[in-house]
């Protein structure tokens, strides 16, 4: 049993997902899914009238320009994703959640309200030759490359569960998307992914 003083982070999917191949078993899996669990996540909401000052400070510290439209900016291990006017989600690969949020608060606390979301969200990376067909069963957006371009992001219901979907760069020659849902909706969302991917074959890793 884990030490009560230092609880271990546990994926919201731990009870429901099975690694390996699911659904159609012949040929290549049409949909591949990976959970991003080694990432720190924090929400940033600019204080009243401070959005410009916040953007200036973040650019000075990181070289990244906070997007003012639904876009993702990323460099090295750090990224900022637009979620609403004056609101962003910051993600840092390989960092510990609270430490990352504390670091942001120390730096930007006077300009923005910052909250650790690392354990509050499940982040999945989906790719594959049939990932768009699979997402189309629950997502109302047009995900074609000419409309939803690399770096575009949107907060929208997918299978009636509010999610943030971001178009990442291609993985090999196939499109990749990042999906973030609130932790408490993760198991329902996972059910949508499993049943919607079955006809194409689903590879979980």
């Amino acid at each position: 049993m884990a030490d009560a003083a230092s609880p271990q982070a546990r994926s919201a999917l731990a009870d429901v997902w099975h690694h390996g191949r699911q659904g159609r078993t012949d040929g290549m899996a049409g949909v591949r899914v990976v959970e991003r669990s080694d990432v720190a996540v924090a929400s940033i909401a600019a204080r009243k009238g401070q959005a410009a000052a916040l953007a200036t400070k973040i650019e000075a510290r990181t070289g990244l320009v906070l997007p003012v439209t639904p876009r993702l900016v990323a460099a090295d291990h750090l990224s900022f994703t637009w979620t609403a006017p004056g609101q962003w989600v910051a993600m840092a690969d390989g960092e510990e959640g609270m430490a990352f949020a504390d670091e942001l608060v120390a730096d930007l606390g006077s300009l923005a309200a910052i909250t650790d979301q690392t354990d509050g969200r499940t982040i999945l990376r989906l790719s594959g030759t049939h990932v768009r067909e699979m997402l189309a069963k629950g997502c109302m957006l047009d995900l074609h490359d000419t409309v939803f371009k690399v770096g575009d992001t949107a907060v929208t219901p997918i299978a009636l569960i509010t999610a943030q979907i971001t178009r990442l760069g291609d993985e090999g020659s196939v499109a990749a998307f990042e999906l973030a849902v609130m932790r408490s909706f993760t198991q329902s969302f996972w059910h949508f992914i499993e049943v919607s991917s079955a006809e194409f074959g689903l590879d979980v890793s």
Binding site: P70, M140, A154, V155, P157
Partner: peptide, 10 residues
Amino acid sequence: PHCGPRAEIE
């Protein structure tokens, strides 16, 4: 005005 065209149910 912020997100672009979306379905009515949003």
